[in-house]
């Protein structure tokens, strides 16, 4: 039974990682940059929802919506202000800028909301699920998290495969120059990807804070790093890869916390990542690119 509980908790945590990893993987796929500020957008999303529910007294659903809209705008503003001028710059310069944005968001949050942890209110008010004659209790937030992740995955896959914008995104990630020649507005497409990624980060932020209800300016950084790892784990640039990587990472983390050692769980998670990358250097579902000479 404890195995089943650990598995469910792992899938739930992994679903949050998967949603965050989607943001990383989409941005990487199209802009070829590691957006280190992504983890901090999660934190901003958490705070926006917290403010809406606690200070403004709005219902949870409105709070979530507000946080998604806020983060989407934030994503677009950050992209326009900090990343767009560096489109032609070397990738390390963009990486450092992203780190600067990450510091900026963390310290702004510190100034606005203070360093003391906030207790995040519950956004899900269903009773928890009882299965197998009450032997197995599943928190309502767990159910909501997994369902949300599933909806997001399916929605995003349909979006990229079926819509015109999705097609433009895939074209841009293949070859920006050729896409531009075909009449695709590359700048708008990249902004759109940042908007979607940041909106997803807001959802992930709310889910993360509901499951682990402490909110601090640094809340986003560790899940951000883990989700980034998950994106690489699954093969960066691939949407199903991010989903698979996220869920596997979550399950491995909770399993090693339950069965091996709480203190060493991070070492085990990263150890598994290293082993996977050594066997499959492009990640689980990543495309192996052959080098042409």
């Amino acid at each position: 039974m404890s195995f089943l509980i650990a598995l469910i908790n792992g899938i739930s945590l992994g679903s949050v990682y998967a949603i965050i990893a989607l943001g990383y993987t989409m941005v990487y796929g199209i802009a070829k940059m590691l957006n280190f500020a992504h983890g901090d957008v999660i934190m901003v999303g958490g705070y926006l929802c917290f403010i809406a529910i606690n200070s403004l007294g709005l219902p949870p659903l409105v709070g979530i919506l507000l946080s998604v809209v806020g983060c989407t705008c934030l994503g677009i503003v950050v992209e326009r202000a900090a990343y767009k001028p560096l489109r032609q710059a070397p990738s390390l310069a963009v990486l450092i800028t992203a780190i600067g944005v990450s510091y900026f968001l963390q310290n702004s949050a510190l100034l606005i909301w203070g360093a003391d942890p906030k207790a995040f209110p519950s956004v899900v008010n269903f009773p928890s699920l009882k299965l197998l004659n009450g032997q197995l209790t599943i928190n309502s937030i767990t159910v909501v998290t997994v369902l949300t992740a599933a909806v997001v995955m399916v929605g995003l896959t349909l979006f990229t495969q079926r819509t015109k914008m999705g097609k433009a995104m895939r074209a841009c990630s293949e070859d920006k120059g050729a896409a531009q020649l075909m009449g695709i507005n590359v700048d708008t497409t990249i902004s759109m990807v940042f908007a979607i990624g940041s909106g997803l980060a807001a959802i992930a932020g709310v889910l993360l804070c509901s499951a682990y209800p402490t909110l601090m300016p640094t809340t986003g950084s560790m899940p951000g790093i883990k989700a980034f790892t998950a994106a690489v784990f699954g093969g960066i640039g691939s949407i199903p890869g991010a989903a698979l990587g996220g869920i596997l990472l979550g399950v491995i983390e909770i399993m090693s916390k339950t069965y091996i050692s709480t203190q060493l769980s991070d070492a085990i998670v990263f150890g598994v990542l290293i082993v996977v990358l050594l066997i499959r250097p492009a990640g689980l579902l990543g495309k192996e690119t052959r080098e042409k000479v």
């Binding site: 900090a82 001028p85 560096l86 710059a89 450092i96 600067g100 510091y103 900026f104 310290n107």
Partner: peptide
């Protein structure tokens, strides 16, 4: 510090 970092990167790489 963060703002200085971003601005320096923007100015030196744009």
């Amino acid at each position: 510090y963060a703002i200085v970092l971003i601005l320096v990167m923007l100015f030196s790489n744009n």
